[in-house]
Write a protein that binds this DNA or RNA. Structure first.
Lengths: 184, 184
DNA sequence: TCATACAATTAGACAGTGTTCAATAACAAT
DNA sequence: ATTGTTATTGAACACTGTCTAATTGTATGA
């Protein structure tokens, strides 16, 4: 209950409007109860973000089920990410705005979800790098992170471009040129 | 005074430890005064972040003065960015963690600073794309954003890698392969 | 020198926030 | 019915951003 209520708040008003008390009010409980369950503000957000990761993952897996290799698959997956980020902007932003206090790292179960998301790109990349799995992994990391960077700076108006089509143009050029180099 | 005091707080304890009241206390003034000058928490952070952008810009310009074209220049600039992000982690993180409330955009003077930073890559890229300035701009945006993405996910432990040398490896491969494609 | 006008600064309030914890309520098993 | 366990509460604490009336400071003109 708490997670889905919190998700709704973030989704409609953004992470900055999120508060444990609001969640408690929305589900008809007290803050005390919420704290007994989640322990901290931090942890509650983490669980909400986890559902966002799950949703993204489901979308990617669905896309992958239609087509599982070739450059166009990579582009489609990139497009998936961009679309998700655009249409679930506040939830997506919460994944990165949420700054955990220094010297604390993400819990294992959460990092696993991230890793799963990243590994998705490896399969369609494999045939493009002579089935070298090490190369595929590195390429997957590079491409994912690059797409994310373009998406982040693009959607937060830090690139001198407008609209998701421009973002798509940049990621497409990135994928085309990078893969051309890496599979040469 | 306020800006440099705030910078110190963010630098040593991170954005989450930052508060207007702490800044006021540190400089021997009251919150009221701070609010008369900066108007909002938001705006104060923006000005602190601006000095971070300035520092980054100065570093890049210095690097550029030594060598102004060729792929190795791009790599050196990327390396600059990564090093800055690592050694000024909290300040750098504040640039992106700071989420402005929805439906408000960054002020012009701030966006100009960002644009200036991005344009730095264009000059050394120009000879690599047949002096096509449009291509150079797009390549600059793509490379910058990609480097940023790799840096962000790498330094926040969202890539399955450790240490800045690995980040450097990814960015180098990105630059090599992307430029190979774009200048072919 | 004094009075006036304007700017800077303050104290204090308001409505929130995250967090903790003793006390209560609900419920299961004996 | 009594115990032990778990869920839930309410109130408190120390903060936070934000606003405004009142105060202090500081120049300028007579």
């Amino acid at each position: 209950m708490a997670i889905s209520a919190g998700q709704k708040i973030i989704n409609s008003k953004g992470l900055s409007a999120f508060s444990a008390r609001k969640v408690a009010r929305d589900i008809g409980y007290t803050i005390g109860t919420l704290y007994n369950v989640f322990g901290s503000h931090e942890n509650l957000i983490l669980h909400i973000n986890a559902t966002t990761l799950d949703d993204m993952n489901a979308l990617m897996v669905e896309q992958l089920s239609k087509q599982i290799n070739g450059k166009s698959t990579i582009k489609k997956l990139a497009s998936c990410y961009i679309n998700f980020a655009e249409h679930n902007y506040n939830r997506w932003r919460a994944l990165f705005n949420h700054s955990l206090p220094s010297n604390t790292s993400l819990p294992d179960w959460y990092e696993k979800k991230i890793k799963k998301l990243f590994s998705i790109l490896e399969a369609p990349l494999l045939p493009l790098v002579n089935n070298n799995s090490k190369k595929a992994k590195q390429a997957a990391q590079t491409i994912w992170a690059s797409i994310h960077g373009i998406c982040e700076l693009g959607l937060t108006d830090k690139l001198d471009i407008v609209g998701t089509t421009s973002i798509q143009t940049l990621t497409d050029s990135l994928i085309d040129n990078y893969i051309a180099g890496v599979s040469a």
